[in-house]
Simulated scan of single mutants.
Amino acid sequence: MVKLVIDSREASLGEGMRVKRILPFRKQRMVGPFIFMDHGGPVDLRPDLKKSMDVLPHPHIGLSTVSYLFSGQLVHRDSLGVKQIIRPGEVNWMTAGSGISHSERFEDPGILAENSLELIQTWVALPEKFEEANPSFKNYKPEDLAVYTDTGVWMRLIAGDAYGLNNHVETLSPLFYLHVKLDKNARYGLPQKHSERAIYIAKGSLEVSGTAYIAGQMLVFEKDVDPVITTKTGAELMVMGGEPLGERFIWWNFVSSRKERIEQAKEDWKQGRIILPPNDDHEFIPLPEDPFKSRSNPSPEPLS
């Protein structure tokens, strides 16, 4: 029933901010259109650490970023001129399309009231016909998102459709994305509509067909199975999936169905053709050294 177990790997986003990286994975590059997933925190938000945790302006193409916080706050700024304080339970959906830059910082005074930060960030690859769409950013409040409760189960629909739930979060391909909390000894069943489905265990543990799984693991399920999922400890989950989009390439913050488009994005960032956020344009993350240039194949590896 469980096709693959992905153990999260530690990655660094800078001083003070280490994350668990789940996707992409060598044996499972995508789940539906989800091409990237990080679990950050919980981390200390002491004032002396906040500046070092800032994520400076950086670019994206060909994807939507989805930021979802369990705790804490951060400030989003982008090249469209948007400034948004991101708070727990909200959905912040930024579609890069043809190109956008953004930053995530911790300077807002309201953050001083918080003592930890924990967030999930995913990237959703775009269908080919939308890869060059105009960039956009939308913030959705918790009251805009459908919630379902049953005995021992609470779930919030972040995006897409599942279990008959839907909301107004705009998506560009068939998918579902849920935040689920299970009490001790609760039972849970996967949504059946979509062909690719996975559960990331953010907290607690699960049992599937008598096998135990722990926090930090993603379970990727076979198509059309209906497993019985239980928890003895309680659990907090991110449940996601959808329909596959086909081959994708990824390099740094760029995703595309075309290798040459990523090469163009590299040059666009180097030459300043992807503009910086107008209210955060004094510093930025430079293009990393390209490891592919030293290989016989200079192109990014495909994701499928």
Results as ranks from 00 to 15, higher is better:
residue 291 P to C: 02
residue 10 E to Q: 13
residue 38 D to W: 08
residue 107 E to Q: 14
residue 32 G to K: 00
residue 271 Q to Y: 07
residue 15 E to C: 05
residue 31 V to S: 08
residue 242 G to S: 09
residue 213 Y to V: 05
residue 16 G to E: 03
residue 6 I to Q: 07
residue 104 E to A: 10
residue 270 K to A: 07
residue 61 I to R: 07
residue 12 S to T: 04
residue 75 V to T: 15
residue 50 K to M: 10
residue 63 L to T: 08
residue 93 W to K: 10
residue 136 S to C: 08
residue 87 R to V: 14
residue 69 L to W: 02
residue 168 H to K: 15
residue 33 P to S: 12
residue 144 D to W: 01
residue 261 R to T: 08
residue 135 P to Q: 13
residue 289 E to W: 13
residue 179 H to A: 02
residue 87 R to F: 09
residue 279 N to K: 09
residue 230 T to M: 13
residue 167 N to Q: 10
residue 134 N to M: 12
residue 95 T to A: 07
residue 226 D to P: 02
residue 127 P to K: 09
residue 185 N to M: 11
residue 87 R to A: 15
residue 53 M to H: 07
residue 81 G to K: 11
residue 114 E to W: 00
residue 232 K to R: 13
residue 5 V to L: 10
residue 259 K to W: 08
residue 23 L to R: 00
residue 128 E to M: 15
residue 228 V to T: 06
residue 125 A to Y: 04
residue 8 S to R: 01
residue 51 K to P: 00
residue 273 R to S: 13
residue 241 G to C: 02
residue 167 N to K: 04
residue 261 R to A: 15
residue 15 E to W: 05
residue 294 S to T: 14
residue 172 L to H: 09
residue 131 E to V: 03
residue 200 Y to W: 14
residue 199 I to Q: 02
residue 26 R to P: 11
residue 211 T to W: 07
residue 132 E to C: 13
residue 110 G to H: 13
residue 186 A to C: 07
residue 162 A to V: 00
residue 97 G to C: 07
residue 90 E to H: 14
residue 235 A to D: 08
residue 40 G to P: 04
residue 96 A to K: 05
residue 2 V to I: 04
residue 26 R to D: 14
